[in-house]
Design a binder for these strands. Sequence first.
DNA 1: GCCGTTTTCGGCCCGACTGTTTTCAGTCG
Length: 593
Amino acid sequence: MLHFWCIMTNHEVARLLRNIAAAYILQNENRFKIIAYQNAADSIEHLSANIEDLGRSGKLKNIPGIGSSIASHLDELFTTGKSRHFESVLKQIAPAVFPLLDLPGFGAKKAAKLVTALKLNRASEAIKDLYNAAKLGKIASIPDFGEKSQQDILEAILRFQKQGQKEKRMALPLAHTLAMEIVDYLKSSPFVLKIETLGSLRRMVATIGDIDLAVATKNPEAVLDHFVSYPKFGKLIERGSGGASIILGGGQHVDLRVIKPPAWGSMLQYFTGSKSHNIRLREFALKKGLSLNEYGIKNLKTKKLMEFASEDEFYRYLGLSLIPPQIREDRGEIEAALKGRLPQLVSLSNIRGDLQIHSSYDLHPSHDLGKNSMEEIVAKAKSLGYEYIAFSEHNPSVSKHSIQQIIDIMKRRKDKIEQIKESTKSVRILNLLEIDINTTGELALPEEAFDYIDAALVSIHSSFNQSKDQMTKRVLSGLSHPKAKILAHPTGRLINEREGISLDFSQIFDHAQKNNKAIEINSYPNRLDLPDILVIEAKKYGIKFTLGTDSHDISGMDLMKYGVSVARRGWLAPDDIWNTKSYNEIYKWLTNN
DNA sequence: GCCGTTTTCGGCCCGACTGTTTTCAGTCG
């Protein structure tokens, strides 16, 4: 099969479709056609799978927002390297328009007006040329522009250029921890009646831009005064009657919104989003003659606006059950709520044990040891109310030991674990090991050493850049060992640091389902892996999951809630997760070879 | 151009903010 070495990323394809939309705007095309292209671009940007891979397997039309027309153009683009239709559309527009679309506050019309008026004809230098024109005061005299907009354009360009070194989105656990500190602080004000996170933070998305909070109060000014006295306060951005924005000392942006209690529910619903959930919900409401906005629900006939003090009442008024924030992503949740078929999502209280923990027991591992002893971990597990935990240190280094040495190390470790089991009756112990899958697909543990563990988690820790075919074979091979029961942090992604490996997940999930293997949801702060969208995919195969904190010290064991939030975003119920089951059930599964 | 609990035709979310155009278009979330 013909293969193009340089495949397009989802971001690049999305960008191309946004350029097409911009071109259509300038050609006064049907505005819904324009929206369709923008929707398709959004949809592609949020995909977990690579768009070109989906194209190769003929699944483009499965992507929401992509129908037969766009699918056929993309198909042509992927197989021949170009789309005649896209090229002919883009050809109509001055090339310098497109780079300007990246500037904040710029849309197609503003960009095109400037390109024409200033005769910008070098696409690669468009932003620079625009900047120089603004500096020379050439923009203020263009019709529809003035002194203010000229100044705004200068600032927009500077902001855009600075964006390169801008803070990346925060991993959820960091944002959540910061938010909870602020929430605790705000609660010390007697005027705070209710407080909640908003936006992606409330939905527990894996990465967070700004920290958004809301407070219900009868005295907004007092609450805002309290907010801007926060000890970690860095800089005030703005303050109005409805809220304030600040930057913390660490550079994180925090927005607080204040509202009277009777309108709390509608406000919370509106600002929790997601945007696509809200759009779908408004379409749904419209069919009932109702219009939704941040203040409440308006009856289009009577023009009367109903306020809602709680989200529960808001959703109920629409004939829906309350949809948990984590699944408000327009992935079928409204239809499910309508039919009363929302899943009973797993919660932290359902979790009876932690299935990935690294102790400081030194088996000369291939990767890092934990910091706390097995005894300290057991004590921590007790304080968390767990029924069981798993020790899952990394396998002993292969290169530094002989096979016999490894066997001896594993034997001694088993003795140690047996000894801990003797002394601790309240917390049951599982003897697991996290084993590397080598580049060839072999597990980095001699066969005889498997006798000294109950079962293994297997994972990729090297050669992350193998081709998708190689990597898929590698993982399937590793997972095929009878003692390999869990595929740990399956994509290997590190948020803000490393993209995940490329893997054919349909094969992995299929294999896992047929062979009773579990897929891990790893709670480690910058992993949160398997990512939520793939969890939804995996669940369709009917496979089970395990949750593990991947703790390397006992404070890490507190982070299970983030794994739970990934599971909730993946629509998982307790029954989908092994750690909600009893020790006996898990032990039976793990040791049933 | 997409999509389907009333529809394969005829719809397609909502409001805030901004600047400049005195009545609105463009952009954003």
